[in-house]
Nucleic acid binder design. Sequence first.
DNA 1: GTGATTGCAAATCTTTTGCACTAAA
DNA 2: TTTAGTGCAAAAGATTTGCAATCAC
Lengths: 141, 141
Amino acid sequence: MTTAHRPFKRALDRLHGAGLRPTRQRLGLARLLFEGCDRHVTAEQLHGEAVSADLPVSLATVYNTLNQFTAAGLLREVVVEAGKSYFDTNTSDHHHFFLENTGRLEDIPGDHLAIQNLPSAPTGTRIARVDVIVRLVEDGE
Amino acid sequence: MTTAHRPFKRALDRLHGAGLRPTRQRLGLARLLFEGCDRHVTAEQLHGEAVSADLPVSLATVYNTLNQFTAAGLLREVVVEAGKSYFDTNTSDHHHFFLENTGRLEDIPGDHLAIQNLPSAPTGTRIARVDVIVRLVEDGE
DNA sequence: GTGATTGCAAATCTTTTGCACTAAA
DNA sequence: TTTAGTGCAAAAGATTTGCAATCAC
């Protein structure tokens, strides 16, 4: 039955599509990242999940892999806290809520958020991306 | 002539206002930061300036001071790159251009930029701040 | 005086790198 | 077989911390 292999095949195709050799750890990490819903992970987090899932992988390789995936357009890096990188599996144009208390990062639902009167880029430059981070704190703080 | 002491007095008042004891290095750093136009500095940068200006101060103290100033509302921290903090002397509500090539951070001129259809904060939370970072790259990249 | 502040060095934390080893094509 | 990828440990960079010495009040 081929059905059981579909998630595996999807991950494989994704790597092929990005021109990345499908090694054991890249496949395993791709499955952790892309099966299921969109997610926001740190390298440390993903490494923990990989270890729990009996995928032998070092933290250094997780970092390398996340950077390769990002360069290949499979992931997007989101910077919200100094000294910590989040990687977002949703690479489409969208923005984020950041819960300062817990360190959680979430997509802002809907695609309604828009920016008015964005100034044009200074001469000699163009806009690569616009990031909007809505920082949330616990009520009553 | 008291005129010559005005910048010193302004820095002193600012520290008093924030409830911070006006030590030599806090005064010196405050003058570097707040005399002149608004600026965006990293700890490393400011430390370099202090040393050039013959203000004896260690990098650790620069970090501590920047954090104290931020906690006191004299500065605002802007996060644009993983692993690097910028401190902005303009604490009013505004947004930023970030030049990815050079690492320069600039205020977006004018106060016209506005956000449309911002979703309400999830239950139990409130919006602490909205950061907009417009990432620029050199033309033709 | 006395409690806050500083300097320094060491510690911490995140991320990257060098290199011998292993696995994919 | 040949080249890319991995693991590990070490390096690197940014920031924080512990503690004795120093300074503001």
